[in-house]
């Protein structure tokens, strides 16, 4: 079991997964987003090779309306 925090909420994965899988599972693959794991930005090109570890804190952000 791999337990992580995504945007402050707990998520549990039964098997080892990579970041690309996580993004797909959240239906975010076609969105303009940026991702941090443990406060380190993960470039889009590295989603596939980035394995998720238990205890990781993942932040996924997007652009919203603002002034």
């Amino acid at each position: 079991m791999i337990s992580v925090q995504i945007n402050g909420k707990e998520k549990v994965f039964a098997t080892e997964v990579n970041l690309e899988w996580v993004i797909d599972s959240l239906s975010l693959q076609n969105r303009k987003i940026a991702v941090e794991i443990n406060e380190q930005i993960i470039p889009r090109s590295e989603y596939t090779k980035t394995l998720i570890k238990s205890g990781d804190s993942i932040e996924i952000v997007a652009a919203v309306g603002g002034g």
Binding site: N7, G8, L26, S27, I33, V61, A63, V64
Partner: peptide
């Protein structure tokens, strides 16, 4: 200008 915020999870 735009702001940067956490995405909604489980969005359509």
């Amino acid at each position: 200008t735009v702001a940067i915020r956490r995405t909604n999870l489980g969005q359509n």
